[in-house]
Every structure is written in structure tokens, then in C-alpha cells.
């Protein structure tokens, strides 16, 4: 259905393009401009105020020699990988279970989605109390007579990041489930009928037919989860404040602490540039894979 006579493509939908100019400018100035500014100043010795006092890679050398930054990177990797996999798996399983035309589906959906309505601050505080060894689960179970029961992940430097992960999953899985459920509902009923006629077990249908058909839903979900992982900050702040010690620090908190509390802009800029680089390393190949071949396909 191609148009028979195309005017110059520049003037097509002219009003729409004019309307988009403010947005384009905002994107260029705020996002691109400020990003470039940050990267440039990460090579300076700026303290509380930005100064054009270039020192080469000094800030980066210091950054990668800092234990707290290394711990932060390790934590975000653990949190990121686990939360990506687990929230996709749990979210999909919950959605598939809800999709079995069960009774009280609305009730369950509400219960699962409800945590998402809470902010990370509230989530963090709630789980801080639940996991607190002196007041929370440990105390309750010991009260039942299991005197040796220990569940002190919040006070344990090795496990504290998993305690944060639990809270993050509790908060975020509901949304993943809702997205997946919407995807499942979008699958044509006839496909299920056909697979039943062919005698394919339903788990196989899910795995080899339904999931590949839900690819767009998975991509959307992935982007939402990934964005949540990179910016995780408030959850940590509310639940552990980075402690015990520096065991649950994350990069975003490092950036904030050094820019504003320590008054060392250069160091904060260097750390945020590293965060940007990491995101780009993951994003660029994916964008090329996802959209690069599209022109030929459609």
C-alpha cells in the first residue's frame, strides 16, 4: 500500500515534526549535552565546583583502586544478574499459573501487583524490619522453639546483597507478572486448540510456541527490569545504607556520596561515566541485533 506520490520526505508530516522540535532539543541539550559535559569534567580535578583543571585519567585510576567502588561493581553484577533471571522466571511462572482460568484471579493479581505500588523506600524499610535479626523472622522462628535458627543476612557481609535482592524481587515481580499475563492473553486461542489436537503437553506449548510468540513482551520487560537495576539506589539506602560496612554499596550511591557529601565532583563524574560506559557496552550490541536487521525483514 505504498503511497503513489511521495512529497520530499523532509516535509512529510511537517506539523508533527515542528511539534517534536522542543523534545528533540531537550533530548540533545539535556541528555546528550549534559552527558558530554559530565564525561569531559570527569578528566578534571573538580572538587565542590567544576574547574577546567585537566588531570588525565587520574580520577579513573583512583576509582578503580578504591575498594568501595570494586565492591559496588560486584554487588550490582550479582544483584543485576539474579534479579533479571529470577524476576523473569518467577514473573512468567506466576502469569502462567494465573492463566489457567483459576477462580479469584482478580484477587491474586491484585495481591501480586500490590508491592509495585509501594516506593523502594517503603519496600526497603519493610524488609529491613522483616530481616532484622533482633525483631524479624529470626526472632519469630526462635520464638517457636527453634533456638539455633539463624537468618541474619542483613548483618552478614557475604549475604546482605541477597537480602536486598529479596526485597527487590518482592517489589518488582508483580509488574513482570502483569506484563507477562497481558502477553499470554494476547496469544490466539486457536493456537492452544491446535496444540491440544496435536497432543502436545502444555509445558511444551508454553516453552516452544507461546514464549517465542511473546518476544516483544519479553523485550519490553527486559528493558524495564534493566533500567530498574542500573538505578537501584533508594532500596539500598532505605534497607541497609550500604552496610554492614561497605558490603551492600552500589555504584549509584558511590556517585552521590562522592559528588555531594565528599564534595569531589571529578570522582563522582568518573564513576558515573563508568556506569554509562557499562550500560552502552550492554546496550549497543543489543540495539544492533534487535534493530539492525529490521530493514530487510519488513
Amino acid at each position: 500500500m505504498a503511497q503513489s506520490q511521495r512529497p520530499s520526505s523532509l516535509f512529510r508530516n511537517l506539523s508533527a515534526k515542528i511539534a517534536a522540535i522542543p523534545m528533540i532539543l531537550t533530548a540533545l541539550v539535556i541528555f546528550v549535552g549534559c552527558t558530554v559535559w559530565t564525561v569531559v569534567y570527569s578528566f578534571t580535578k573538580s572538587r565542590m565546583l567544576p574547574k577546567e583543571d585537566f588531570v588525565g585519567l587520574m580520577q579513573y585510576e583512583r576509582l578503580w583502586a578504591t575498594k568501595r567502588w570494586l565492591v559496588s561493581v560486584e554487588n550490582i553484577a550479582i544483584y543485576g544478574i539474579c534479579s533479571l533471571i529470577l524476576s523473569l522466571v518467577i514473573g512468567f511462572v506466576l502469569a502462567a499459573l494465573l492463566d489457567q482460568k483459576i477462580r479469584f484471579e482478580n484477587t491474586f493479581r491484585t495481591i501480586f501487583l500490590y508491592p509495585y505500588a509501594l516506593s523502594f523506600i517503603v519496600t526497603g524499610l519493610v524488609w529491613q524490619w522483616i530481616l532484622n535479626p533482633t525483631f524479624g523472622i529470626q526472632k519469630v522462628v526462635r520464638g517457636w522453639g527453634f533456638e539455633d535458627f539463624t537468618f541474619d543476612w542483613l548483618a552478614n557481609t557475604d549475604y546482605v546483597i541477597y537480602a536486598v535482592l529479596i526485597a527487590g524481587l518482592w517489589q518488582g515481580t508483580g509488574l513482570v507478572m502483569a506484563l507477562m499475563l497481558a502477553g499470554l492473553r494476547g496469544i490466539d486461542e486457536d493456537i492452544w486448540k491446535a496444540s491440544r489436537v496435536d497432543g502436545i503437553p502444555s509445558w511444551k506449548t508454553y516453552l516452544f510456541i507461546v514464549i517465542p510468540m511473546m518476544r516483544p513482551v519479553f523485550v519490553t520487560t527486559l528493558v524495564i527490569i534493566a533500567a530498574g537495576i542500573v538505578k537501584v539506589y533508594d532500596l539500598i539506602l532505605a534497607q541497609t545504607s550500604g552496610g554492614p560496612g561497605i558490603a551492600s554499596e552500589v555504584p549509584a550511591k558511590y556517585v552521590y556520596d562522592y559528588m555531594f557529601r565528599a564534595g569531589n565532583l571529578g570522582q563522582g563524574f568518573a564513576a558515573s561515566t563508568m556506569m554509562l560506559v557499562t550500560v552502552l557496552i550492554i546496550l549497543i550490541p543489543w540495539v544492533i541485533l534487535e534493530y539492525g536487521g529490521k530493514k530487510n525483514a519488513s
Binding site: K67, R68, T157, G245, I246, D257, Y258
Partner: peptide, 12 residues
């Protein structure tokens, strides 16, 4: 801030 970080790590 740097000393804070070091001491917090040591303490925990």
C-alpha cells in the same frame, strides 16, 4: 569520606 569508607569496612 574515604576514611569513613575504610573504617566502616574494617568495622564490619
Amino acid at each position: 569520606q574515604q576514611i569513613d569508607d575504610l573504617l566502616a569496612e574494617f568495622w564490619a
